[in-house]
Write a protein that binds this DNA or RNA. Structure first.
Length: 274
DNA sequence: GGAGTTGTTCCGCC
DNA sequence: AGGCGGAACAACTC
C-alpha cells in the first residue's frame, strides 16, 4: 500500500533513471486506468516528450514533461512503477508501458487495477479532485504545530480517521496512521476534539518521525510494495502495531488488538494508547 | 464463492 | 453549510 514513504522512495528510485530521457512510445493494455483521455490521445500526448523532473505530492507522483504537461499517477493499493529492460517478459497485470530512448521501459503494473494515470497541463492539476483537496505536506513549511492543532480541534470524528483525511495532512494511509498513533500513545478511537495540547504536540511530532522512519527504511513492503527497481523496503521489520495483533507491545508488553474503525482495520495497544 | 484488502468518493442525515 | 458515518466502488487473491 503505497503511502507517503513508499511513493517518496519510488520517486527517488525513478528520478535518476527517468529525468532527461525521452518517451519514444507508449502501449496501453488496460484502458480504464487512463482517466483524462482516450488511449490514442494519451499516447499522442506522451510520445516524443522528454521527462524533465519527478516530484511527489501526498501519495501522487508528478512526472513533468517538456510539453508543459504533467503525467500524474496515483498507485492506490497495489500499483507499481517499475523500470525494466525492454527485453524482459511482460508480466501479468502490466497495464501501461512507456518505451524510453534507451533499452529501458517504465511499466505500470497493478494487480487490482485501482491505480490511475492522468495527463494534463500543469495549470490544470486542480481539475483532479483528489489532488486539489490535498492538505499540507508533512515536511512542508505550512505544516506547523499551530496549523495541526487548528485542523484537529473541534473535530468530532475519531483521530485515526482524521489522520487518513488527505485534506488535513497529505500522505498518511492505514499503516502509518496506526504506527503514528502508537508512537504518540493515543487510542485511535479517541474523538479528535478530546486530545489536549500535549497530546496534539506528541501526535504532530510522531507524524513527522514515523513518516521519516518509513522513508529511511525505504518503505513498508507488507504485501505488494516495491520501489522503481523492484526492491522491497524494510520498514515492515520495524512496525509496532500494524498487522501485529496477538503480539506483545514493545513498550508495555500488552497484547496488540485489531479492530475496525471507520470501516478500516485498526491496530493498537490497549495498554499504552489511552 | 465469500471474505478480506484500502484509498477515495458519494450520499443522506443532522 | 458543512461535518460526519456509512456505503459504494475499484478487482483481485485465497
Amino acid at each position: 500500500m503505497p503511502e507517503l514513504p513508499e511513493v517518496e522512495t519510488i520517486k527517488r528510485s525513478l528520478h535518476p533513471k527517468l529525468v532527461g530521457r525521452k518517451i519514444r512510445d507508449c502501449e496501453i493494455f488496460y484502458e480504464k486506468c487512463i482517466k483524462t483521455h482516450a488511449p490514442e490521445k494519451f499516447i499522442n500526448g506522451v510520445r516524443g516528450a522528454t521527462i524533465e523532473n519527478i516530484e511527489r505530492r501526498g501519495k501522487y507522483l508528478k512526472i513533468f514533461l517538456n510539453t508543459a504537461e504533467i503525467l500524474l499517477i496515483h498507485l492506490r493499493m497495489t500499483g507499481r512503477l517499475i523500470i525494466s529492460p525492454k527485453g524482459d517478459p511482460v508480466t501479468k497485470h502490466t497495464h501501461v508501458i512507456f518505451h524510453l530512448d534507451n533499452d529501458l521501459q517504465l511499466r505500470f503494473i497493478d494487480i487490482r487495477k485501482f491505480g490511475t494515470l492522468y495527463l494534463l497541463p500543469g495549470e490544470e492539476l486542480h481539475k483532479v479532485r483528489g489532488y486539489r483537496i490535498l492538505g499540507p505536506e508533512p515536511f512542508g513549511e505550512e505544516f506547523t504545530l499551530e496549523y495541526f492543532k487548528k485542523a484537529v480541534k473541534e473535530r468530532k470524528k475519531n483521530i485515526k480517521t482524521l489522520l487518513l483525511d488527505q485534506d488535513v495532512v497529505a500522505g498518511i494511509g492505514n499503516i502509518y496512521a496506526d504506527e503514528i498513533l502508537h508512537a504518540a500513545g493515543i487510542n485511535p478511537a479517541r474523538p479528535a476534539e478530546s486530545l489536549n495540547g500535549n497530546e496534539l504536540e506528541k501526535l504532530y511530532h510522531s507524524i513527522k518521525r514515523e513518516l521519516k522512519k518509513g522513508i529511511e527504511n525505504r518503505g513498508t513492503s507488507f504485501s505488494d510494495y516495491v520501489d522503481g527497481e523492484g526492491r522491497k523496503g524494510k520498514n515492515q521489520d520495524y512496525l509496532s502495531v500494524y498487522h501485529r495483533q496477538g503480539c506483545n507491545c514493545s513498550r508495555c508488553g500488552c497484547e496488540i488488538i485489531k479492530t475496525k474503525l471507520g470501516g478500516r482495520s485498526s491496530h493498537y495497544c490497549p495498554g499504552c494508547q489511552e
